[in-house]
């Protein structure tokens, strides 16, 4: 596989990483995402990593970079589906990923994206209105 497919769902872009990523593929994903974001004028990006069985510092940095780039381009990024073993390993490794928003699964991720995008829309009322 040469590219990781990017799907547009409503106002968001959805990326589901399904393969054991080699480094070139990861680099290409960053480029593809920025191109797609500008082309589709999407408001947010959801990255599903539930199929990834490891996240090392390289992939971690890539995810962090995507979040930063999207934020510069005015979009929100949410990473969903990180496996427990992967999360424990990342913490032990010392990666913080502090600029990355996370959610448990795609459903909750979309919900969080909506909240984030709306709270940017209504400037000035940016409270944690985390409604159920």
């Amino acid at each position: 596989m040469d590219h990781i497919p990017i799907i547009k769902v409503g106002e968001f872009l959805l990326v589901s990483i399904q393969v054991d990523m080699h480094d070139r593929l990861a680099m290409r994903l960053q480029d593809d995402l920025t191109t797609q974001l500008i082309k589709t004028r999407a408001q947010g990006v959801l990255i599903d990593i539930s199929s990834l069985d490891i996240v090392d510092s390289f992939i971690g940095r890539m995810i962090g970079n995507i979040a930063s780039m999207m934020s510069i381009l005015g979009a929100e990024t949410v990473v969903v589906g990180m496996r427990p073993a992967v999360a424990i390993t990342i913490v032990e490794l010392g990666l913080s990923l502090s600029n990355v928003r996370t959610a448990l699964n795609v459903d909750k991720g979309i919900g969080l994206l909506r909240v984030l995008v709306n709270s940017i829309g209504n400037e000035g009322s940016r409270h944690d209105n985390y409604q159920k």
């Binding site: 054991d20 480094d23 069985d53 490891i54 996240v55 090392d56 510092s57 390289f58 496996r83 427990p84 073993a85 992967v86 424990i88 390993t89 032990e92 490794l93």
Partner: peptide, 30 residues
């Protein structure tokens, strides 16, 4: 990475231990 994972599974290491070893191998290999 795949080989390390396969060997860890063969020796019945726990999922977390497998993940740590594969991740460490990935760091050093890179």
């Amino acid at each position: 990475r795949q080989a390390v994972r396969a060997w860890m599974i063969e020796q019945e290491f726990s999922l977390v231990t497998q993940t740590k070893m594969v991740t460490a191998s990935s760091e050093l290999g890179r």
